[in-house]
Simulated assay, not measured.
Amino acid sequence: MPELEKVVSSSDFDDWFSLNDTIMGGSSKAVCRASSKGLSLEGVVVEEKGGFVSCKSPIFTPLLNLSSYQGFELKIEGKGRTLKFGVSCKYGILGLKEFFLNKSPGGLRWVAEIDTKRFGTTIIKVPFESLEPTVLAKKISLPIKFKSDSISQFQLLHSKFGRPGELNPGFKPGKINFLLQSISVY
């Protein structure tokens, strides 16, 4: 089995920030905090007018080129929540970026649902091929490919929306507290 390479670990979470549904008129409140254990998100998620809380990485400069890998491995203490891992890529196709930026300030995001254990650490592999394209939680039907050679940002969310176009069957409003320990590639 090939060795995992850490992309993000406890010392790399300092610049991550919270992005909650308040940007859409919601009232969820959560804060990201970096520590020696990883990145925690603590707060309250409210379903009405949004229904999400998240931690987001800064935009990577230079972009991450992970084209020699097959997927991500995340280590998370999620306390039984179904989370969503989002990855943004930079596309050089004329007009594509502008199209998605006009539809959503966050643009195109590749997502995977992550079911976590109620107790302890969940270790989950997310193959690049399993990531699904989405804009504002809606499925994208355009023929577009995940660009593992130009990854620009990561996001970890708890949202009432799960897979593109679907509700999250593991969504729980109320107090939330999870810990992202690391993101590796394999």
Rank of each mutant, 00 (worst) to 15 (best):
D21A: 09
P127N: 15
L4N: 06
A34W: 14
T134M: 13
W110V: 03
C89L: 06
M24G: 02
I183V: 15
V31H: 07
C89T: 15
L156R: 03
F178W: 15
L41K: 06
W110S: 01
E48Y: 02
L39Y: 12
F128G: 04
T116H: 13
I76H: 07
T116Q: 10
I123C: 12
I76N: 07
D149S: 12
I93R: 15
I176K: 00
E73H: 03
T134G: 07
K97E: 14
F100E: 06
S130P: 00
K172N: 02
S182E: 08
S11H: 13
F171I: 02
Q153F: 15
S141G: 11
S152V: 10
M1A: 15
R81S: 08
R109D: 04
S159Q: 10
V111N: 14
R81A: 03
S36K: 08
A137C: 01
P58G: 13
K145R: 14
K117Y: 09
N102A: 15
S148H: 09
I114F: 03
F171D: 01
S27T: 09
E48F: 01
N177K: 11
R109A: 01
S18W: 09
L19H: 14
E73Q: 11
S130R: 10
S152Y: 12
R118I: 01
P62G: 11
E3F: 00
E98P: 00
K145W: 12
D149E: 13
G26P: 07
N168A: 02
G162N: 11
G120S: 06
N177W: 10
S11F: 15
D12I: 13
G78E: 08
L83P: 11
K103E: 07
G162I: 04
E47D: 11
V45Y: 09
T22K: 12
E129D: 09
V53E: 04
L101A: 13
K84C: 05
V44G: 00
A112C: 04
S28R: 06
V45G: 02
Q153W: 07
L179V: 13
L41C: 14
Q153K: 06
S150Q: 10
L39G: 03
G120W: 10
T82W: 03
E73Y: 00
K160F: 06
T122E: 12
L19Q: 08
S68H: 01
N102E: 13
K138E: 08
N20K: 07
G95Y: 01
